[in-house]
Amino acid sequence: MRRRGFFALAAGVLVAAGCDAGGAADPAVRRLFILEPTADGHGWDGIAGRLATVLVQSGLARTAMAVERQGVLGSAPRDAFGAFRGPFAREGRLLVTAMPMVAAAEIANTAAVVNAATPLARLVGDWAVLVVPSGSRLRTFEDFAARLRQNPAGLTVGGRSEGGSDHVLYGMIGKCLGVDTRLLEYAGYLAPDDAAEALQVGRVAALLGSARALRPEITAGRLRPLVVSSGGRIDGIDAPTLMEVDVRLEYSDWCGLLGPKDMSPGDRDAAIALCDRIDAAPRWRSLCAAHGWSRVYLSGDEFRQWLSTETARTRGVLHELGLLKSSDTTCWGSCVRRP
């Protein structure tokens, strides 16, 4: 894609080095574009702009521009970079990715994210919590599990978009409980307010969502947490982990960075080194703490291997939920359920 066409399709915020550039005389990259999908269900709105600010203020980039990239979420890795070629240190481009993009690519029957771009790093994660209204008869996760085993279709659970992280997590929980995943009832909502309203008026019996986002309602006593998806308990949320209730599962809606598919070895190494420096930057760590993001850093070949495994796990759950015809990893053109 020519540069003129690229900017015609996107809006961005430019951050340039000034007097608070951390004193670095030789930034890792002169000019950096951080592309962020604007598609519904992406779930990490605004993180590109925050990354751009951290990069410049920490002296890691001379200028950094956060660019909103419109388009279909599942094909974003294929479409975002166009014909761009490095060198990365002079003008680099990164794409914000997350679990919903992985699921969207599988549902849309496009190339898997891990194959459509160069996996660079997993940065942060957002743990989930299962909540019910404070007056619900479901007092504990054991109550919820017993009802689900008795009648899998009898409980409707709400969350973010269908096929996204909350939906996939619900499928994983059902599978761990020995429930026929195909019978699970799930209602996806693009707006958090719509999901909250559905819970309060009884259209859904429980809600899966970001523990970080739901904590104020939990603290105020309007919602009762039943379980969290993290490996350890979460401060401010009095609920066990899935592991504690014998559901052998840990799961978060993660966010990371991708590079163009055909990066040279030198450009890939430079981009991964930049990600390493982002994770180590005090400003980034302070930002993560302020927003309640858990640092789950993984980079390079380890991230690529993890992403391949996570893609296969996600594909399997989407198949069991009825969103894919097959869990086969090589059935391009025939896997997606058609209306």
Rank of each mutant, 00 (worst) to 15 (best):
G171R: 07
L207S: 02
G322I: 09
G74A: 00
V317W: 09
G236I: 07
D267H: 11
D276Q: 08
L183K: 02
T110W: 09
A146F: 12
E162V: 10
R3Y: 15
G43E: 09
A48K: 06
L130T: 04
G135S: 13
R30K: 13
D166E: 11
V228R: 10
G46D: 08
A39I: 07
W284V: 00
S252Y: 14
L249D: 02
P133E: 11
Y251D: 13
A104Q: 03
S161G: 09
L318H: 12
R277S: 05
F141W: 09
V204K: 13
D262L: 14
L148F: 00
V296P: 07
T314F: 11
P225Y: 08
C331Q: 14
S264T: 14
G171C: 05
A116Q: 05
R50S: 12
T110S: 11
A108Y: 04
D253T: 15
A103S: 14
A83M: 15
T311Y: 03
A112K: 09
V296S: 08
H167R: 01
D20Y: 11
A205S: 15
E162N: 07
M99H: 15
R122L: 03
A66R: 07
L323N: 11
P240N: 06
H167E: 01
P133I: 08
A8T: 13
D79C: 05
E142I: 02
A196Y: 12
A17L: 04
Y189V: 01
G266M: 12
R31Y: 03
A108P: 06
D166L: 05
M1G: 10
L307T: 00
L208E: 06
I173P: 02
G236L: 04
G74M: 01
R304L: 02
P152C: 00
D246R: 03
G23Q: 02
N115R: 10
R31V: 06
H319G: 12
Q305M: 12
L123Q: 05
G74D: 00
L226Y: 02
A213W: 09
E197S: 15
R313T: 05
L184S: 00
V15D: 02
M263F: 06
R295K: 04
H42T: 07
G333Y: 01
D235Y: 09
G5N: 14
V124H: 12
S286I: 08
P87G: 13
A153E: 03
L177M: 00
S327C: 13
A104G: 06
R139H: 11
A213D: 12
A220G: 07
P265V: 08
R268N: 04
S75H: 02
R268S: 04
E244K: 04
L123V: 06
W254V: 03
L184D: 00
F6V: 04
V96H: 01
D253Y: 15
R31W: 04
G92H: 08
V96N: 02
A220K: 10
A280T: 05
L73D: 06
A312F: 09
C176L: 09
V336G: 11
L9Q: 15
L223Q: 10
D246Q: 01
F7T: 11
M1F: 13
A112R: 12
Y170G: 00
V228T: 15
L9R: 15
P37E: 08
E217K: 08
A89K: 15
L73V: 06
P27K: 15
